[in-house]
Structures are given as structure tokens and as C-alpha cells.
Simulated scan of single mutants.
Amino acid sequence: MTLFNLPVSIKTYRMSGPRLNVLYPVIVELPDSAVQQQINQLIVGEVKRQIHQQGYPLNPNTELTGYYEIKTNERGVLSLSLYNESYASNTHRWTLQNSLTFDVQTGKLYTLQDLFVHGVDYVQSVSDIVGQQIRDRHIPLQSEFKGIRPNQDFYIADKALVVYFQLEEITAYVYGFQYFPISVYEIQNIINEQPLGTMMY
């Protein structure tokens, strides 16, 4: 096993200010410092983008908290979710979730399209699976499901690709985020070796 196949080391940092308390991950001790810096810059950039999207600091009544979850940290793949919750008096709490999936050897940030063999209609393939799960799980949609976006939110968790939808994207707020785990074995004929293919073994 090479060093790159080991889990990467992660420390928790805090971004704070008036009505702001955000925890985020920082990668440390990678052999390639340039790759480490690239990954960390992308993470911090996404954290700041979430804060800006929530309207901070323009709205003086908004309080923000942030945290993260590591979904996969193995076999040269790091996949994580960043959460940002805003709260203002007389309104319900609003949460953003955005995920980043990296090749820790090169620093590459994967898009959903990158996971699939070139030329494959991955949007249709994934949409078909999600649509079936919606029917099987009797998920109450706000409108007819017409398929995923080409850049649909996703993360990798062990041996599954998880695509998900933001609050109120396909269901009412009360139902929260909607997650659709897809086994790598179900889509093994259309995925690239990196990063999903390596999760099969």
C-alpha cells in the first residue's frame, strides 16, 4: 500500500466573527505541499461562498453556524460535506449542504461527470435510478421529477455514490435533504476507475 492510499490527516479550524461560528476541515501532512494547499484553498473558498450565499454579514439579524462531515477518506479519495445553517428571528433555520470530492494525490476536484466513462449519458442513468427510488420510497414531491441536473450535488460514501437535493429542491422544507445512495456495483459498467471504480474492491 502506498502512502497515498492511507487516510489523509485532518484538523478542524474555526472561522468566527459577530454571529458567525463555522468549523471546517484543513488537510495536513500531505507529502505534496502544493496539492495540500490546493485542496485547502478549495475547501476554504467553498466555506466562504456558503457564508456569502446565506447573506452574511449584510443581514444584522442572521446567525450562522457551520460544520462538516467526512464521507470517505480512503484509497486516495477524500469526500466531504460542508454544512452552513442560518437563523434569524421569526424565520425557520435554513441549511446549505455542499460536498467536495478530491483525488488527494493530484488535488483534482471531481465533478459528477468526471465519475463516469466519457460519452455515457450519466444524467439519464442516474435519473432513472433516482426516479425508481422516489417511487419505492413514496417520497412526496412538490412537482413531477424530471431528472437530476448535470452538476447535481453528490458525495462518495464507502461503496456508494450518493446524489442529493437541497432543501425545497424537490420536496417541501419539512422533509429536509433528500439523499439517494447508488451502489457502485449497480453502475459499475459506466463508471471510471477513479474514483468510484477503486471503491469496488
Results as ranks from 00 to 15, higher is better:
161 L>Q: 09
48 K>I: 03
41 Q>I: 00
119 G>M: 07
101 T>C: 14
161 L>T: 11
23 L>A: 06
40 N>S: 07
88 A>K: 09
75 R>D: 14
61 N>M: 10
139 I>Y: 01
92 H>V: 11
190 I>W: 04
54 Q>R: 14
148 I>S: 04
191 I>A: 07
134 I>K: 00
103 D>F: 08
67 Y>W: 15
117 V>L: 15
137 R>M: 10
28 V>W: 01
177 F>W: 00
95 T>R: 15
80 L>Y: 01
150 P>T: 13
66 G>S: 13
180 F>Y: 13
163 V>T: 15
110 Y>V: 07
88 A>V: 09
48 K>Q: 07
186 E>L: 14
195 P>G: 09
186 E>W: 02
19 R>Q: 10
2 T>C: 04
45 G>P: 10
168 E>T: 15
105 Q>A: 15
138 H>T: 07
113 Q>W: 00
83 Y>V: 10
194 Q>P: 00
187 I>D: 11
18 P>T: 13
36 Q>L: 05
21 N>I: 08
54 Q>N: 11
164 Y>I: 09
45 G>M: 06
19 R>I: 03
135 R>D: 12
20 L>W: 02
113 Q>P: 02
199 M>L: 12
59 N>E: 12
143 S>E: 05
193 E>F: 13
33 S>W: 00
23 L>W: 02
28 V>N: 00
12 T>C: 05
60 P>D: 10
116 F>N: 08
78 L>W: 00
37 Q>G: 06
151 N>C: 04
176 G>W: 02
158 D>Q: 15
4 F>K: 11
159 K>E: 15
184 V>L: 02
156 I>W: 01
102 F>H: 05
4 F>G: 13
40 N>C: 05
135 R>Y: 03
142 Q>R: 10
138 H>Y: 08
96 L>Q: 13
48 K>C: 05
139 I>H: 03
120 V>A: 15
90 N>A: 06
139 I>N: 05
149 R>Q: 11
32 D>R: 05
192 N>E: 15
78 L>G: 00
6 L>A: 07
169 E>L: 09
75 R>K: 14
114 D>T: 07
92 H>A: 09
77 V>K: 01
2 T>P: 06
26 V>S: 01
138 H>D: 13
90 N>G: 00
171 T>V: 13
138 H>A: 09
198 T>S: 08
199 M>V: 04
50 Q>I: 14
53 Q>P: 04
80 L>D: 01
81 S>L: 04
90 N>R: 12
49 R>L: 13
129 I>M: 15
13 Y>F: 07
49 R>F: 11
153 D>C: 08
29 E>Q: 07
165 F>N: 14
48 K>M: 08
173 Y>K: 11
139 I>W: 02
97 Q>A: 06
179 Y>D: 08
37 Q>D: 15
38 Q>A: 10
100 L>F: 04
17 G>P: 03
5 N>P: 00
5 N>D: 15
41 Q>L: 06
60 P>E: 13
149 R>W: 04
71 K>W: 05
41 Q>C: 03
107 G>E: 08
36 Q>F: 03
57 P>F: 03
184 V>Q: 00
96 L>W: 06
128 D>Y: 03
40 N>L: 02
177 F>M: 03
116 F>K: 07
69 E>D: 11
10 I>H: 00
107 G>Q: 04
106 T>E: 05
94 W>Q: 14
32 D>F: 03
15 M>W: 04
174 V>T: 11
97 Q>V: 06
21 N>D: 14
123 V>T: 15
44 V>N: 03
89 S>M: 08
